[in-house]
Design a protein around this nucleic acid. Structure first.
Length: 413
RNA sequence: CGGAGUGUGGUGUAACGGCUAACAUGCCUGCUUUGGGAGCAGGUGACUCAGGGUUCGAAUCCCUGCACUCCGACCA
């Protein structure tokens, strides 16, 4: 894309109503637009990052057998009453609305009930199981307090997957398979080293633990106790000697850290399937309960976590796997023809490139490139051509080097 | 939801209860410039969040509402 066509612009100063680093940088660089507290729009650059994260999540969910679908945001009240999750006293962060005739509707905050209800129409026999379905869509939660930019919003993008199994053993096999795929997702996002599977409270429906995926960071609101050697952590909410004994850990091998919950997986047992009367028939013709699990990843939260985690004092630094573009090609001086030729040949080779063809000074182009944080910066200028080609610099490096066009293509392979 | 704070051109800030609300940046015109947010000149742009009140006089003081931020609580 030509930067002269990009409608967003960078800003030198962050808006005064944002204090979180992720929102400040993402707004300054033109990735997001704040609509209201906890509600952000994704502008072209932010949209590309979001879509890149979704792509990785999709690939990994498909790899473990997930089938993608998309449920609705508008929710009928009756299915939520069957599980006793409609009453505001039970679930207090609903957004609710109504039809013109007064019929109450919910605005989707999660999708266990509608998924179970829909799936139930197709699952009758043991031959129909197991099944895993997932979706990536906006969730709406009426949080009393939105905070920390993209980390805690009222409208946010989430991947939620649901598994349906015939037996506890089958469920556990799926559960572990998905947990494994989560590690792959975070590794591909560049967060593998600092993201820990974490024992957490299983909630009111099960006596088991649930598993959170916590990315260690000072911006986190959760306190976790981490064993670096065992690559496992324990959330403060279940940090007792009794619980630690259950999972084979002791307090002296754990260190206290702050974490951001970037995913969580729950064993739901038969709570929802039973409540919505969804069962299967075994090979003896007997009605059997369906064991369910659910698996969330905070997709838009990850945009904020990654933005903030990798940023330096000059701006964003995107991992290559999700960067909005791979190359930021900066044209300086009278090099428009050569820059265009290089831009086109890069595109021909399948490289995503942002060409800074704006009529602006070198300093402001460099400052913008640093702020936007595209992994590779390539400068084409009279000076670079004199010295034999192009200047190539990684966003994460301080200094660049002059290379030829062939060497550039080579490095981008 | 409890507590604290803040609302001034697009953005960031300033202004004792008292001149036509100032500065920077952005944006527009022209010229010059082109390797780290360039220079000069001219121009554009704010009923100071909304509504009420006090006062000869309110951006400034008071009340109500709304919005935003932070701390806490909450967070399948």
């Amino acid at each position: 894309m030509r930067q002269s066509h990009l409608f967003t612009k960078t800003r030198k100063e962050a808006p005064s109503d944002e204090t979180s680093k992720n929102a400040q940088l993402l707004i300054r660089a033109g990735f997001i637009h704040k609509e209201m507290a906890g509600v952000y729009a994704y502008l072209p650059l932010g949209m590309r990052v979001l879509e890149n994260i979704k792509k990785i999540v999709r690939e990994e969910m498909n790899n473990v057998g997930g089938q993608e679908l998309m449920m609705t945001t508008l929710q009928p009240k009756d299915i939520w009453e069957k599980t006793d999750r409609w009453d505001d006293k039970k679930v207090d962060n609903w957004f609710k609305t109504a039809l013109k005739n007064g019929t109450e509707l919910g605005v989707g905050l999660t999708h266990e009930e509608p998924i179970v209800d829909a799936i139930g129409e197709y699952i009758n026999s043991y031959k129909d199981l197991p099944v895993m379905v997932y979706q990536i869509q906006n969730k709406f939660r009426n949080e009393l307090r939105a905070k920390s930019g993209l980390l805690r919003g009222r409208e946010f993008v989430m991947k939620d997957m649901y598994s349906f199994a015939r037996t506890q053993e089958e469920h556990e096999e799926i559960y572990e398979r998905v947990a494994e795929s989560y590690h792959k997702v975070y590794a591909r996002l560049g967060l593998g080293d600092i993201t820990y599977r974490t024992y957490a409270d299983g909630g009111i429906f099960t006596k088991r633990f649930s598993d959170e995926f916590q990315t260690l960071s000072d911006m986190g609101e959760d306190t976790v106790y981490v064993s670096e050697s065992k690559k496992i952590a324990v959330n403060k909410e279940v940090y007792t000697d009794e619980n630690l004994a259950k999972v084979g850990l002791t307090k002296d091998e754990l260190v206290e850290r702050k974490g951001v919950e970037v995913g969580n997986i729950f064993p739901l047992e038969t709570k929802y399937t039973d409540a919505l009367d969804v069962h299967f028939m075994d090979n003896a013709g007997a009605k059997q309960p369906i064991i369910m699990g659910c698996y969330g990843i905070g997709v838009s939260r990850l945009v904020g976590v990654i933005a903030e985690h990798f940023a330096d004092d000059k701006g964003l630094v995107w991992p290559e796997s999700i960067a909005p573009f791979r190359v930021h090609l900066i044209q300086l001086g009278n090099t428009a023809d050569k820059a265009t030729a290089l831009y086109e040949s890069l595109i021909k080779k399948g490289t995503e490139v942002l060409l800074d063809d704006r009529d602006a000074g070198a300093g402001s182009k460099f400052a913008d490139a640093d702020l936007i944080g595209i992994p590779y910066r390539v400068v084409i200028s009279d000076k670079s051509l004199e010295r034999g080609g192009l200047e190539f610099k990684k966003r994460s490096d301080a200094e660049g080097a002059i290379i030829t066009e062939e060497e550039l293509f080579d490095r981008l392979k």
